[in-house]
Nucleic acid binder design. Sequence first.
DNA 1: CATTTCACCTGGTGGC
DNA 2: TGCCACCAGGTGAAAT
Length: 278
Amino acid sequence: MPELPEVETIARGVNERLRGDRIIDAWFSNYPKLFKTPSAHQTKGLNGSAILAVHRTGKHIVCELGEARGSSLVESDAQWIVHLGMTGRLLVTTPEAPLALHTHARISLASGRELRFVDSRRFGRLEFRDLSRSPAFRAAGADPLTVTAAEFAQIFHSRRLAIKAALLNQNLLSGVGNIYADESLFRAGLRPSRLSGRLTRAELEALRLALREVLEHAIRLGGSSVSDYVDADGVRGFFQLEHCVYLRHGLPCRRCQTPIRRIELAGRGTHFCPKCQR
DNA sequence: CATTTCACCTGGTGGC
DNA sequence: TGCCACCAGGTGAAAT
């Protein structure tokens, strides 16, 4: 379900709850496509590790793992990486809590709690990295929250595809999905079908700022209004945020009352105001 | 190489 | 109520 703001919120939530805890057992379902690293390796790698910290990279949740010797000053020697796909959820529960349908991972913790990964559509991915054997995880594209004006312009100025399609390409920017692509283009006043390489410097900069504002706003609202996001109804909370265009086709534009239009672009539903976005 | 299309999945919704 | 078509916040492989 998650784009950058949801993943950021979930990573923060898991970090607050599980930082410093120790993994004493790990169980995985037997649907191989979910596991970028074979599940047997993940079980072996996770078992006995301490969770030093949890953070977001692109749309990935990265758990830094290491030895549990006292404080968290120990350097990470492994990473457990969770991508939620479309429907993935992370739950912090007790072992006794009823098992949700489509539970694919159960991580038992020394504190007595349990971290679960649930994913009905199975588009999510789980990966384990032994940092003595492979490099630390890095996002392919730039982070939309920290990318500079120059970098942003460099990324988009030469491309011959619709700006919406470019925004969704995780190798260019990491973290933007369908909702925030549409919402940021609305905020910047740009038609999603505009060719990336035909946008002016000023338009690209307007888009970079609009994107950052939309994402930061969603993180703020999500973090405060979604109290129990690491839970069944967590990401649903983000759906209650007030979108300007996403899924609002036929409804009046919040700025000018013109009906929002829906087209298909880059294989995705795309929503825009024909008057506000040129 | 850059860009586009499509398969991968289950579940919810709304029309008939 | 049941059945069905269509839609859904993602991505990586295959085709162009």
